[in-house]
Design a binder for these strands. Sequence first.
DNA 1: TTCTAAAATAGTAATGATTACTATTTTTAA
DNA 2: TTAAAAATAGTAATCATTACTATTTTAGAA
Lengths: 129, 129
Amino acid sequence: MKYSKQREKIQEYLKSVKTHPTANQIYSELIKEIPNLSLGTVYRNLDNLYTQGLIKKVRTYDDTDRFDGDLSMHYHVVCACCGKIEDGFDEYFDNISKKLEQNLDCKILSDNLIFNVLCSKCKDNLRRK
Amino acid sequence: MKYSKQREKIQEYLKSVKTHPTANQIYSELIKEIPNLSLGTVYRNLDNLYTQGLIKKVRTYDDTDRFDGDLSMHYHVVCACCGKIEDGFDEYFDNISKKLEQNLDCKILSDNLIFNVLCSKCKDNLRRK
DNA sequence: TTCTAAAATAGTAATGATTACTATTTTTAA
DNA sequence: TTAAAAATAGTAATCATTACTATTTTAGAA
């Protein structure tokens, strides 16, 4: 794989934010620095980076993929009401994946754990209505 | 929500199979019984059933949603090479979700845990090449 | 440094899953 | 039996993502 400024900037950007942006959001941000950036280039490089294991793909319950530069073992909590996305860490999650690789004799390429929730705030708001 | 034969058949079908079919696959199967069934009706009812918590939505890494009539707490293992989907059960998974609801004081509406793997067979096949 | 083939890009067109729309049919409760 | 509410079939529209192509960039050899 040859070097490209576009790919470097995409990876850099994903490492710098905790917002789990979509391809479109990444494009909108980076076009400020790279004025002739193409959306297709963003998609292609996100796919390259994902395939290489250099970024994570987060599939929430909405119709758009999100991307994450944080490679540590973690899951995501998405509020179905306000849309907020939070990271979640739990040693049990590591345990599940380790057991799985042993029991099935398989190699995990990537994982995606999403909890679609009603967050504390939104739950309280509903109660007041 | 009023009764509809279409919705009943969709739910029935999902309870009877372990294949995690797509909307299109469900449509192709049920049109044998309901000759004028519409794909839009399948999508609408899948969404109804999912929102009511009567079926699960499985989001693998391909671009198509899959559906599951098995409501027990389980995850899915998808081989990136041969496409095989297997169910996985682990008490740790229950633990993660229980802890999450307590710690964040939130209500889990649905969950989706996918492991994208190279299964045992495909791993061996690669080795031989 | 110059040259060249391979790989990447920008810009645009195509794809395909899903959703929206509307006239018609079905359900359900009075 | 009837009428309003909800569901359906069939079709059109949407929109995230992928494919395509002419041009540009990269990287290694001369």
